[in-house]
Nucleic acid binder design. Structure first.
Length: 647
DNA sequence: ATGGCTAGCA
């Protein structure tokens, strides 16, 4: 026989491995390898591992690891294969364990591949000390001018927080290729040095699409959408990443309509969106409360068979919740086969914002049972759930458990929730004390929460303190002056009312205009107070007049004290009647299908007068209305609101 | 028989 049987077997096994198309096939192949003892061959095992890891790594990685652990003396190549697999997983620290083990346990010496992988592992797990040790090895072993290793070192020093040293490594490179430039660029972006990134970008001898896309993302991250757009427009070629980056730039910077416009432009340009694109598009829908558009995008995802991974699933959960459709939010949640802390947090926050505090707390317990570790955001949801249901003791217990059980330091927003919770329950002194005790400066949210309870429980002294702090923090918000004046008016302190008006005239107040929107047929219609820019404005005002008439018959009395301008009652009333939410609802009544739910999104807190009016609208017109304001949802039906009139 | 860079959620 000219060719030894073993060689034939080997060739045959290799081609079988090569040809397999699923993990299951590989699984079956493994028994063949065991029978022929080919599993003892590192060469074959490596091929097997690589093929295995080509399939979905969360499933195949543990399998590959088990296989690896049965190899008697893994060689450097085999180690490198597995180290790389862990590097791309959620668990880069395991790469480092293997890196150490290869030399100490199996005496396999790290080659240039291992070294660059080891350095990347340090970067991604912030192992500063180990990174420096490997760097020393690199110098000792003479790998100092290996492009891959040097590039890894740039990333490593940047990620451990030493961008200056990263730049030094970059500067000392005898030659720099495009990838080295791109990594340096990405690391400047990563640590927020967009100015340095731009200088480097302009200096680069050649740029590719990655360089342009890095800059688009960099500007987006720094909040400079217009610069991001400029780079996007200037780049001659645009790929999936370029489009996704610019869409995300607009979505993150609250220019959602432009984000949605670009999403259409991308498709016209022949670029097929993927799951990453969809996340940004959905977050734009969520932001403006465009439920119809969100549903359309959901259908698009299903029609185009875009994989719904944890992040995309979470975006859908979040979108539905923020668009007021908590049922669909729950449905997507239950349909997901993997959920992470963000998925659970989104669901908990969603439920809480809809006033379903008890459900939110049940979900939290389930999350803990399933072994998902909560983070600070989860607790924002948990505490606000307690808030909406007035669960003082439970809220306190969760707040204390943050430190004691989960080792999460409460941030200012958690204190804000607690102040709100205590205040709502009437424990105003305790709430005030908590502000005193918190380890940082209270922000506007905290004072606003305290103020809310002072209004309910008519505690003028603390209200004055809260509002003066608010005015200090946000001197330009007219609403604060209105509140203060109302409090004085309630207490018949008219001299103080006049004083506030004087104060207001002195301050440089830029009104944040209240605006409300309603989506009809995937188009979002936005209204500001007294708006007559809508093409159907005449009909809207006719409907509004009729609506107010019917409400008055049902007992509506405009709360004119909310209007601070020094004008007569009639003018005050007409100002109230033209509030943006009332205009949006009038439009909704005019144009929507009879009996359908009307969904309104407001940028600020819903005003007291509108809240009372909407309750009556739900009764008189027999409609459900779902209003999203700055903080939460109000579900109006049968003359009542889900918030129980405290918001 | 292997390797480095760009876009996503609360």
């Amino acid at each position: 026989m000219l060719v030894p049987a073993k060689t034939l077997e080997l060739k045959f096994a290799m081609s079988l491995i090569q040809q397999s198309t699923s993990l299951l096939q590989l699984f079956q192949l493994q028994s063949l390898l065991l029978k022929t003892s080919l599993n003892l061959n590192n060469f074959v095992t490596a091929k097997f591992l690589r093929k295995c890891l080509a399939f979905s790594p969360p499933k195949s990685l543990p399998y590959a690891r088990a296989l690896f652990d049965h190899v008697h003396a893994p060689d450097t190549f085999l180690y490198n294969t597995l180290i790389r697999a862990y590097l791309q997983s959620q668990n880069p620290i395991e790469s480092l364990h293997l890196f150490r083990r290869m030399r100490l346990v199996d005496g396999a010496s790290p080659d240039s591949f291992s070294l660059s992988l080891g350095i990347q592992a340090c970067a991604r797990s912030s192992e500063k000390g180990m990174g420096e040790v490997i760097h020393a090895h690199v110098v000792k072993l003479g790998f100092v001018s290996d492009l891959f290793i040097e590039t890894a070192l740039i990333e490593m020093y940047a990620k451990i927080g030493d961008i200056v040293l990263a730049r030094k490594v970059f500067g000392l490179m005898p030659e720099r290729d495009l990838v080295a430039y791109n990594v340096m660029l990405a690391e400047y972006v990563g640590c927020g040095e967009i100015g340095q990134a731009r200088i480097l970008f302009d200096e680069m001898p050649i740029k590719d699409l990655v360089s342009w896309n890095t800059m688009i993302h960099g500007y987006a991250k720094s909040g400079e959408v217009n610069s991001a757009r400029e780079i996007f427009d200037r780049s001659r070629e645009k790929d999936l990443v370029s489009w996704s980056s610019i869409i995300s730039a607009y979505a993150q910077n609250k220019q959602c309509n432009e984000a949605l416009r670009l999403f259409k432009g991308m498709q016209l340009g022949g670029i097929v969106p993927d799951k990453v694109t969809m996340v940004s598009v959905l977050s734009a829908c969520a932001d403006i409360g465009a439920l119809g558009m969100g549903k359309t995008i959901h259908k698009f995802i299903e029609k185009n068979k875009i994989e719904i991974d944890v992040k995309l699933g979470t975006s859908l959960v979040d979108m539905y919740a923020k668009c007021g459709d908590i049922e669909n939010s729950l449905q997507v949640f239950h349909g997901m086969d993997e959920r992470d802390v963000l998925t659970w947090s989104s669901m908990i926050i969603g439920l809480a914002s809809h006033g379903l505090g008890n459900d939110a707390l049940r979900f939290f317990s389930k999350m803990i049972q399933e072994g998902i570790k909560p983070n600070d955001i989860t607790f924002v949801g948990v505490l606000s759930a307690c808030n909406h249901n007035g669960l003082v003791d439970e809220g306190r217990a969760h707040f204390n458990s943050m430190n004691n059980v989960y080792k999460i330091s409460p941030k200012v927003e958690h204190y804000g929730c607690m102040v709100d919770l205590l205040g709502r329950a009437g424990h105003i002194k305790q709430a005030r004390q908590l502000i005193e005790d918190m380890p940082f400066e209270p922000d506007a949210v905290v004072w606003r929460a305290l103020l809310g309870s002072c209004r309910t429980y008519k505690n003028i002294e603390i209200a004055e303190e809260a509002i003066n702090n608010l005015i200090n923090l946000e001197p330009y918000v007219d609403g604060h002056y209105v509140l203060l004046s109302n409090i004085y008016a309630q207490a018949n302190r008219w001299a103080d009312v006049a004083e506030v008006r004087k104060l207001m005239r002195g301050a440089n107040i830029q009104r944040i205009p209240g605006s409300s929107s309603i989506e009809i047929g995937n188009i979002v219609h936005e209204f500001v107070a007294g708006d007559n820019s809508h093409p159907r404005s005449d009909e809207i005002y006719k409907m509004l007049a009729e609506m107010i008439d019917r409400l008055k018959w049902a007992g509506y009395e405009p709360v004119t004290s909310l209007v601070l301008q020094d004008v007569d009652e009639q003018t005050k009333e007409s100002a109230l009647i033209q509030h943006s939410e009332k205009l949006a609802i009038a439009f909704g009544l005019l144009i929507s299908v009879p009996k359908s739910t009307i969904r309104i999104v407001k940028n600020l807190r819903v005003c007291e007068d509108c809240h009372a009016a909407i309750k009556l609208i739900s009764l008189v017109y027999e409609r459900k209305l779902i209003v999203r304001d700055r903080n939460r949802f109000h579900h109006f039906a049968d003359g009542k609101c889900s918030c129980g009139d405290y918001w």
